[in-house]
Nucleic acid binder design. Structure first.
Length: 209
DNA sequence: TGTCCGATTGGT
DNA sequence: CCAATCGGACAG
């Protein structure tokens, strides 16, 4: 059976459920350079106007984050620190700022293309770790930038698919990383990881709060 | 227009 | 631990 592209209905559900179920799916980007695929192993949910860590905090809509407020199943990609990008999946209902940040993937296809884009040479099992083990690293490896923000994830170029047969794995919830500025929101267990996967960010908070 | 800062990364 | 590097958010 061929991998099934995730549907609009998949993304329209509860954001925490979508976040968990995105683990193990395949992120696919097709471009002129070729096709790259990675298995999602680490995500974080950013939910609603009360989440002080989220760009949607206080329902403040700007040109940058407006896609977060739109319908589910679209990419929200923003620039950070002047030089990096982060990929989010818009989830939930229209007019509610909800999204899932893709924090790490494990390369499945197109490792050479990823290495070229990342400027890395060592694609041995050990060297390949650094290709996609961070939110902005995977954006570089997958050639994702601001021009793709708003892209339809139900389209043909950038999408998630459910691999068949899918593997089984253990999921763990933890605090989100680097959102200490968000007060009480920083303690929410809204980060989800595939336990034991080598591409997951090593972190002292790889446990419940 | 001016100031402040980040859902990160890579090197010391 | 710390600097890089600049678009975005917001105050004035």
């Amino acid at each position: 059976m061929a991998p099934a592209k995730l549907t609009r209905e998949f993304y329209e559900r509860d954001t925490l459920l979508v976040a968990r179920e995105l683990l193990g799916t395949h992120l696919v980007h097709v471009s002129a350079e070729g096709r790259v695929v990675g298995k999602v192993v680490e995500v974080e949910a950013y939910i609603g106007p009360d989440d002080a860590a989220s760009h949607g905090y206080g329902n403040r809509m700007t040109r940058r984050n407006q896609v977060m407020f739109g319908p589910a199943g679209y990419a929200y990609i923003y620039q950070i620190y002047g030089m990096y990008y982060c990929l989010n999946v818009v989830t939930g209902k229209n007019n509610s700022p909800e999204a899932v940040l893709i924090r790490a993937v494990e390369p499945v296809e197109g490792v050479e293309i990823m290495a070229k884009r990342r400027g890395l040479v060592d694609i041995s099992e050990k060297g390949a770790i650094r290709l996609t083990n961070g939110p902005s690293k995977l954006c570089r490896a997958f050639a994702l930038d601001k021009s793709l923000s708003g892209a339809d994830l139900c389209g043909d170029d950038l999408y998630f698919s459910d691999p068949h047969p899918s593997e089984t794995f253990e999921i763990r919830a933890t605090r989100r990383i680097n959102v200490d500025y968000a007060g009480a929101s920083s303690d929410l267990p809204w980060r989800f990881i595939v336990v034991g996967n080598r591409f997951v960010t090593p972190h002292k908070f790889n446990r419940l709060p």
